[in-house]
Write a protein that binds this DNA or RNA. Structure first.
Length: 328
DNA sequence: AATCACTGCAACCGCGACTGG
DNA sequence: TCCAGTCGCGGTTGCAGTGAT
């Protein structure tokens, strides 16, 4: 038995939207809203379109403040960072890029950014890196510190499945910077990556170090490190919202179940908007954690990531993922 | 000028998750 | 608790535009 169609496909127009249809839909929604029911909307509007199609058209094209056109380097960086950390969760990534839609970002990744990165990690092809890139020197294996498998275990005990009723996409959109910031104040990035995690009450729960063990570490983004020298934290209250965000990231982290491979991706990243006050991430910059506008990728990992085009997730993992954690 | 190949993007499709009766 | 209806997401497709031959 098949799934019931969401609309009467025989009487539904498909294909590109005409300006008239756009105008009708836009006018209606601006006047009356969606009414919380997309399926019923086309009839109200007088369109022979599927409700899903209307929703898509509105979200991706007609909705106010949609930004089209070139992606900036900053946006590239954000996309790369988040893709490396959470995979193809386009809606979450889009939430970090005001005015961009998940579809836009998905298309951009599939058609341009992926190629850009592939070009960069295949230097023989002679293309320029999308952002400034430098090579890192190999690190001593002997200095290896606990990897993310251990981290995963630790977090598993800290978090429980999430209650969606108190969460939303918006909340998860703010991946806690705590994890993305590395402390490079004293130790060169090339030899030390420090994971720092601050939970509620700004208590430092975990402070892990890891060392890159492979050669050819890449840095995406500017080489210049920015710091939060005063050590102050702009967000003084860490209630549920913060926890949701933490959860979002941790889930993104642990859901991959490939921590040892994953750990080299999200090593040190900060100051995502290139200033000190912008963006949802920076608001939560914890005490003493330094931002660094660099992203570090292991070449082979990036290659693999791109070539699989499934990010860090696969079906095999999804079962386990949903069993242990829900994403939202 | 015609044809072909490639690219980018809008739109569609199917599925899992959620919700309310 | 179940189930139908709906939403939202990510993968995929189709097509128009553009460049190369």
């Amino acid at each position: 038995m098949g799934r019931a169609p969401c609309c009467d496909k025989a009487n539904v127009k498909k294909g590109p939207w005409s300006p008239e249809e756009d105008a009708k839909l836009k006018e209606f929604i601006e006047k009356y809203g969606t009414g919380g029911n997309w399926i019923a909307l086309p009839q109200k509007v007088g369109l022979k379109r599927c409700g899903k199609s209307c929703r898509l058209r509105w979200l991706n094209y007609l909705r106010p403040n949609i930004k089209h056109g070139e992606f900036s380097d900053e946006e590239d960086r954000i996309i790369c960072t988040l893709y490396a950390s959470i995979g193809s969760r386009w809606s979450i990534i889009a939430a970090q890029l005001p005015g961009r839609t998940d579809n836009d970002i998905k298309n951009y990744w599939n058609t341009k950014l992926k190629k850009k990165l592939m070009g960069m990690i295949q230097p023989n092809q002679g293309s320029n890196p999308p952002f400034s890139a430098t090579l890192h020197t190999p690190l001593p294996q002997s200095q290896a510190l606990p990897g993310l498998s251990q981290l995963y275990k630790d977090f598993s005990s800290l978090y429980t499945p999430m209650d969606r009723s108190i969460t939303g996409l918006e909340s998860i959109s703010s991946i806690p910077q705590n994890f993305l910031y590395g402390n490079n104040s004293n130790i060169p990035l090339t030899t030390d990556y420090q994971y720092s995690y601050y939970g509620q009450n700004q208590e430092r729960l975990m402070d892990l170090k890891s060392y890159a063990v492979k050669e050819n570490m890449l840095i995406f983004g500017g080489a210049e490190a920015s710091s939060s020298s005063d050590g102050s934290c702009s967000q003084t209250s860490h209630g549920k919202v913060v926890k949701q965000e933490e959860m979002g990231f941790v889930q993104g982290l642990v859901s991959t179940n490939r921590f040892e491979e994953y750990q080299k991706f999200i090593l040190d990243y900060g100051n995502i908007n290139g200033d000190n006050n912008g963006g949802p991430f920076l608001d939560q910059k914890p005490n003493g954690i330094l931002g660094n506008s660099e992203l570090q990728y292991d070449i082979e990992e990036v290659k693999q990531l791109i070539s699989t085009s499934n990010g860090l997730l696969n079906d095999e993992n999804k079962t386990q993922e949903t069993g242990m954690y829900q994403y939202y």
